[in-house]
Simulated scan of single mutants.
Amino acid sequence: MRAIIKKSLNSGVTNTNISIALLVLRVVGGAFMLTHGLGKFEAFFSGEPIQFRDPIGVGASASLALAVFAEVLCAILLIIGLSTRLAAIPLAITMLVAAFIVHANDGFGRQELPLLYAAIYISIALIGAGKYSLDNWILKK
Rank of each mutant, 00 (worst) to 15 (best):
I120R: 00
S61Q: 13
A87Q: 12
T84N: 12
K40P: 01
A21I: 05
A3I: 07
F45M: 13
M95H: 04
R26K: 08
A43H: 11
L34H: 08
S19D: 09
I124Y: 02
S123V: 02
R26V: 00
G12D: 11
T35N: 14
E42K: 15
V13S: 08
I4A: 13
S19H: 07
V28E: 02
T14W: 05
V27S: 00
L77C: 14
A75Q: 03
N17A: 14
R110F: 11
S63E: 05
G47A: 09
A67E: 02
S61T: 14
F41C: 10
P114Y: 01
I101E: 06
S123K: 01
I124A: 09
R2T: 14
A75Y: 00
E71R: 00
H36A: 11
A70I: 10
L116D: 06
A119Q: 03
V58F: 11
P114N: 06
A98S: 14
H36K: 10
F69H: 06
K40A: 10
F100T: 02
K6R: 13
A125M: 11
Y121F: 15
E48D: 13
V24T: 13
M1G: 14
I18H: 06
F69G: 14
L9F: 14
R26Q: 01
I122L: 15
V28N: 04
L115D: 12
G59R: 01
E71I: 02
V24P: 05
A60W: 07
I4N: 11
F108E: 02
L22Q: 12
G57D: 05
Y117S: 05
L96H: 13
A87P: 10
A21S: 12
N136D: 15
V58T: 08
G37V: 03
F108S: 03
L38N: 07
L78Y: 03
D54Q: 08
T84R: 08
L64P: 01
F108Y: 12
G47N: 10
